[in-house]
């Protein structure tokens, strides 16, 4: 008895929910959504170990260049990831690799895994 009662209730519930669902579309409907999101580089450490500036900001050298430019437009200063998963400003790293072909953090041979875009 109890069991059949429960199923009965359940069925009622489902029926009720469905009815509500139909009513739903009419109650509150979302028409428009202006989303806001923030992007950041997908890095483990947010400071570039070479120039000690946050990777989200342009590296020291680029900041200096931007300073000198009359327009003040920041040059593209992207991030680079090595196979070792360490990340730096691309500008900083290309300077570094001219002298030393190893990752400054783990001393493994440096090879680029991906570049930020």
């Amino acid at each position: 008895m109890a069991a059949s009662g429960a199923t009965n209730d359940e069925m009622m519930d489902i029926g009720g929910a469905e009815l509500d669902n139909n009513k739903n579309e009419k109650m509150f409907t979302l028409k428009k959504w202006n989303a806001v999101a923030m992007w950041s580089w997908d890095v483990e450490c947010d400071t570039c170990a070479i120039c000690r500036v946050q990777v989200m900001d342009a590296c020291l050298r680029c900041q200096g260049d931007g300073n000198r430019q009359a327009g003040g437009k920041q040059p593209e200063c992207v991030v680079v990831w090595g196979e070792c998963n360490h990340s730096f400003h691309h500008c900083c790293m290309s300077q570094w690799t001219q002298q030393n072909k190893r990752c400054p953090l783990c001393q493994k041979e440096w090879s680029i895994q991906r570049m930020g875009k």
Binding site: K26, L30, W33, N34, A37, M38, V79, M115
Partner: peptide
Amino acid sequence: YQEMHTGRKLSWLYSKSKGEVLANC
């Protein structure tokens, strides 16, 4: 966004995102 860029991650600011809701009740 993933197709256009590499190495970036997005976090959504829901409290700043606004929507228009049509009320029929």
